[in-house]
Design a protein around this nucleic acid. Sequence first.
DNA 1: ACATTCGGGACTTCCCGTTTTT
DNA 2: AAAAACGGGAAGTCCCGAATGT
Lengths: 214, 214, 214, 214
Amino acid sequence: MQERAIATRYAVMQAAAQLFEERGYAGTSVGDVVRLSGHTSGSVYFHFNSKEGLARAVAEAYHSLWPELIERCMSAPEAVLVRTIALHLAVADAYRDDVLVRAGARLWFERSSIGTPLPAPFAGWITVTRGLLDEARACGEVGAAIDSGRAAHLIVASFFGTHTVDDALGCRDQLAGHVLYMWRLLLPGLGAGDPADVLDRAEALHTQPTRASR
Amino acid sequence: MQERAIATRYAVMQAAAQLFEERGYAGTSVGDVVRLSGHTSGSVYFHFNSKEGLARAVAEAYHSLWPELIERCMSAPEAVLVRTIALHLAVADAYRDDVLVRAGARLWFERSSIGTPLPAPFAGWITVTRGLLDEARACGEVGAAIDSGRAAHLIVASFFGTHTVDDALGCRDQLAGHVLYMWRLLLPGLGAGDPADVLDRAEALHTQPTRASR
Amino acid sequence: MQERAIATRYAVMQAAAQLFEERGYAGTSVGDVVRLSGHTSGSVYFHFNSKEGLARAVAEAYHSLWPELIERCMSAPEAVLVRTIALHLAVADAYRDDVLVRAGARLWFERSSIGTPLPAPFAGWITVTRGLLDEARACGEVGAAIDSGRAAHLIVASFFGTHTVDDALGCRDQLAGHVLYMWRLLLPGLGAGDPADVLDRAEALHTQPTRASR
Amino acid sequence: MQERAIATRYAVMQAAAQLFEERGYAGTSVGDVVRLSGHTSGSVYFHFNSKEGLARAVAEAYHSLWPELIERCMSAPEAVLVRTIALHLAVADAYRDDVLVRAGARLWFERSSIGTPLPAPFAGWITVTRGLLDEARACGEVGAAIDSGRAAHLIVASFFGTHTVDDALGCRDQLAGHVLYMWRLLLPGLGAGDPADVLDRAEALHTQPTRASR
DNA sequence: ACATTCGGGACTTCCCGTTTTT
DNA sequence: AAAAACGGGAAGTCCCGAATGT
């Protein structure tokens, strides 16, 4: 692929992401994307084949973000719970800063309107979280009686609910704070140790991620 | 308004709600509504003026549901926390059983696609919840140190997140169970008394609402 | 017909005339007429049956105006040419003051868009004018060599052309002046006597019509 | 613009002109134009953006016709008055032969129904005619006392009135004759020399335009 | 290989003139 | 005579392929 082609593809996708986030899939026309990106419809169809392809591209870019992020957060030498919370904070940052992330999230909500089967994100996150909880329980970081499946479900739901509500109320900048508060209220119920300590360490881990962040 | 008109209006709105829930606002055409409702486009535009008017009508019907429900749940002779949880269970039931509720919720997510300003549901719920938490704190049902504003925010977010996730994963019938589990994990963090007891009483209150339910 | 019915009919027709004049037949909707008249669509359909009926009514009212006007102008004890010019001035006044006249004129231009065959106005006027010219020639008021058919055609065309152009240029109040000037330039060509004298007498006759004007 | 595009644009415009002439602006639907032109709505909207754009295009084509025509007629080595009359004959021919001209004229009458401000044709013609009259007066071709402004107004009005009336009465083929007759009756009033001579020369000039007509 | 111009229709929102019901 | 319902278009947009450059 030529350099110009890459730039075109990127610009179009970025424009699409922005519009999908604002207006949803059905509410966005390819013409809108064409206009905003400054390219032409022929160009768009060359790179993405169809409107659906555009959505697919955004969704894929969205999904391909997580593995790397998870890897980065989980490799730190800290307690499982602490690393989990730090991961949440990282996701919250991504959500706050990256249109692509918000667009991907919205597209997923509207997956029924789109033709293609999009990969299920909640399911993935719940599985990951469940694994972390199991690990934490093995380490004694959470109570032995915790039902990791249900708890993972709840945690993911609360986490995404917080995103949604903050988004809706226009306080996306408070997202990280709200996520921390969520954990503060949940930790006792999970039978974890001193919440304040866990949260502090998570925050510390997050502000200075692994070693080298970009 | 004539009886026939009322019936028509209702049927059209119900059809619209169903389609809005399934396909979203932008993904639904007025023609679809016309087809599903079995009426004619003239009729639809007579009653609702525009597609937007249709959405507005659904949203308003959605909002006008809560005051009555809240009143019904809150009049019971029980602890505030118990009544609050019972209210959550009632809302979960409504969400499970009533297309209009799910449509209203989805429309609100997509409010930016719709022209008219829809009333903010989350804000209302947060305010109500905050009031209940204040009351509970005054009664000693939750810890004195609780920040009712932040806690209310979190509770509402978790609650709606649970709806969203269950909806997405196709397990709407488990919604009530997930809501109860959410409270089970939250109650310790809120400094409430024995969680099991509170939850049992809430469930009891919910299954036999006031005295006379419809 | 009841008094109220007559008033309704009149009001609706007046509203229709106004709108037809402004926007033309196809550009006016029955709804517009309903709105402007302040009555209801049922009422309109009761009195006029259809949009076409509305146009027909306006056109008929327009046509029924002329016989009386012609009779009034022509009964004066003056030279034929003078009376003819006075008639033109009277028509010009009617055009200036009466929406119905302008509406009728416009409807006639658009007769092809309307279904019903409207009576031909130009033809009628040309016939009348031709008769007057024949009479004038017999009296020696115009040259013996005048081709009354062609001249009548030209006079009517110029007359209506002046209406149209003045209308278009927004100088409807100068219409009478332009009509007089038209005759001033035409009279020599028609072999008439002193133009100034004829025009003065026509103007005098017009400003004090027969005896009793309203 | 590609060759095919030019052909398409032209065909659509021609179809639009024909329909506008027959049914007026409001009476013509874009669908009619699509049908008659044999193209598709996508094509029409690609080239003209809107129904209004279609009307604008026709009106502009109409207006762009005159400068060339005027130039051609006025460059002949003849008396001003003769050239003016020859110009009128040329316009009459154009009106008889070219739908686009008739459509342009009708659209202008209906300009209030169209959204865009169409350029004023009468005003232009009056100005041109006035200039010619001034010139003619300077050459002694018309009387010194002539008010060129009022006379120009009258001439243009009569000219267009003749078009309208002939059109209405279905005798468009007699238009040239009527125009000549109009001048025959007007020339004496303008204080011109022998009318018969002037008219003969005008007709001669017209039938053999400059040298090379297409 | 990449980009653009042009064209194709189906579809969307909404209004229109009209009839039917109350 | 007012309220309600009816369908058939109206204008205009949408997604996309095909033709046409660079």
